[in-house]
Write a protein that binds this DNA or RNA. Structure first.
Lengths: 336, 336
DNA sequence: CTGAAAGCGCTAACAG
DNA sequence: CTGTTAGCGCTTTCAG
């Protein structure tokens, strides 16, 4: 491996100068800098991040802690974070819980705290008091994205309002018999989002004087397949059916749509379906939904962290990210 | 930050002993080790990865280079890699091209080569000669997953055979008028996979003496929406329709299914549809497909890398990963 | 504007 | 089984 010393010798300057020149610091004559740059390139010199990390205390890497990588929502957010880090020259280190929770302690201590990262983005999870304290001791700036935590910087949509907008869209269309396909926490959402959406649904219904019927509330686990099964059971059994279904996520709404199609129930004629997310498939499947943009949320969180690392506080942008109702073909007025 | 020295002093031993004890090396008395462990825990000591990386030459991190994070196939593979690394105590560093190719050189030199990782997993991409040479100079073991490259270790399914199995399933059902929904390289597949699937489709058809009709071959870009649009156009226009559609990916098959549904074409009666992948949604959507398991492929690639890093060569397991026809409701004999 | 020298926090021989 | 001694490759004062 060619090191900084090689470059220094070949250029005829000291390693200190090479270091300064390569990092674009001031106090290097243009001529020297040019020469250093040329030689470094010729020699194929690339600085060792361990060495510079050790010497400078900055690793130029950011960590992301998330429940699992594969779910659409998480990977989209990760893409947004990555995009932002890439332009800033930071590397992305992914700490996934892998859908379980058992190894969490190990992940945290064995990996995150190893001074491998300059800051941490926590995705859709609550940290324990201990975990926060550890991070603070390490003084790694931390932000939460995709949910909110008291006393910790965070960026997320207003989940309550998003649900309200969805349900009120159904109500505005004339629906009164509205069911709910609920999400849950099985894939590592150590968070309140499912609960917030449940509460918001009930509150919105009640605010409009509409009944919340237990038999129309089913559990879809934030998944297509589970939702399809649950909705199929509900629609097949019900003496009386709801005319609309609010689904706590688009993937579950796809399940509802598929269930309806297989049962020969027309959408939106006999059943309106609305989701939350604006998943990539929502458009081609004609699903009305409340759009949130996990990519943008992730990118914004990363931007905030980068700003904090640069010392320049971002001028207090909005931590609450926008959501928007997207009307498509899956909702309409009830027939009867 | 409490360092190894603090632990050494508090325990009354040397830093060398602390290091040995903490890493589980032999040659430390049980009593000493126990004491060190206790003290380290009490002090909340966590070794610095920069320091140990510098000193030992091993970073305990593995890099993954991929075209983009969000696509199902990539993120599933990443999840598999992560799972494997986690159990081995390795960190995962993600180098994403972000769907473009422009910053590739920067990603490569600025990040990958910085001695931040012990090995590299390249996902669904070809590296240039220069890139390989750089890696070799750095002696970072490298493996390619999700495609094959001459002269470089790789793990992937037999794409040709997978396509053949899919198409022959249609043929076995009695189909002779078979169309093709093709994928492409727009989201960073710097690879042959799309081409291999095209070729394999044609070869299989020809091998069975069946015609490949241009008007039944459409481009779906490996995406739901694009495929839906393309298939809709084809089915609407065609004087004569195919009785079956082979789709180079499940997401495109979903598009075909949706297009058929909207056109009122019954599946599989009037049109059989088959994909490749066994995407999470394939089951609830009733899609017949050829299953491949990106998670397992990723995990296996990671396992190979880890083995190589440990010096123990894995006993030459199969680099070609299995695929399997999964019959569901979207294929059946042609009606005509 | 540039160089010399002192570490950053750990690991790795080498002795004992 | 344990301690001593050098570094790993860079950054960073502090002088010049």
């Amino acid at each position: 491996m060619t090191g900084i010393e090689d470059v220094a010798v070949a250029t005829g300057v000291s390693t200190a100068t090479v270091s300064r020149a390569l990092r674009g610091l001031t106090g290097v004559s243009p001529a020297t800098r040019a020469k250093v740059l040329t030689v470094a390139r010729e020699l194929g010199y690339v600085p060792s991040s361990s060495a510079s990390g050790l010497a400078s205390g900055r690793t130029m890497a950011m960590g992301v802690l998330l429940p699992s990588i594969e779910r659409w929502y998480f990977s989209a957010m990760l893409d947004g974070i990555d995009r932002q880090l890439r332009t800033a020259g930071y590397d992305l280190i992914v700490f996934s819980l892998g859908g379980f929770g058992g190894n969490r302690e190990r992940v945290f201590h064995r990996s995150i705290l190893r001074k491998r990262i300059d800051a941490l983005i926590v995705m859709c999870m609550e940290l324990t008091e201990d975990e926060y304290r550890s991070l603070r001791d390490l003084d790694s700036p931390t932000i939460v994205v995709g949910g909110s935590v008291r006393g910790v910087p965070h960026v997320s949509i207003d989940d309550h309002a998003a649900v309200r907008d969805a349900v009120e869209h159904l109500i505005a269309l004339g629906h009164t018999r509205i069911g709910h396909v609920r999400g849950g926490g099985s894939f590592g959402m150590h968070f309140d989002v499912p609960r917030i959406r449940n509460d918001a649904f009930k509150e919105t219904m009640e605010a409009h004087g509409l009944p919340v019927r237990e038999e129309w509330s089913v559990f879809g686990d934030f998944r297509f397949k589970e939702a399809k099964i649950a909705v199929t059971a509900m629609l097949a059994d019900a003496a009386e059916r709801p005319t609309a279904l609010f689904c706590s996520s688009d993937e579950m709404a796809f399940g509802a749509l598929t269930a309806a199609a297989e049962l020969g129930i027309s959408v939106p004629g006999e059943l309106s379906v609305i989701g939350i997310d604006d998943h990539e498939f929502a458009d081609p499947m004609g699903l009305t939904t409340v759009r949130q943009m996990p990519e943008e949320q992730g990118a914004y969180a990363a931007e905030l962290m980068l700003a904090e690392l640069e010392g320049k506080k971002l001028e207090g942008g909005p931590v609450t990210q926008p959501h928007e109702l997207i009307e498509r073909a899956s909702t309409g007025p009830p027939l009867h």
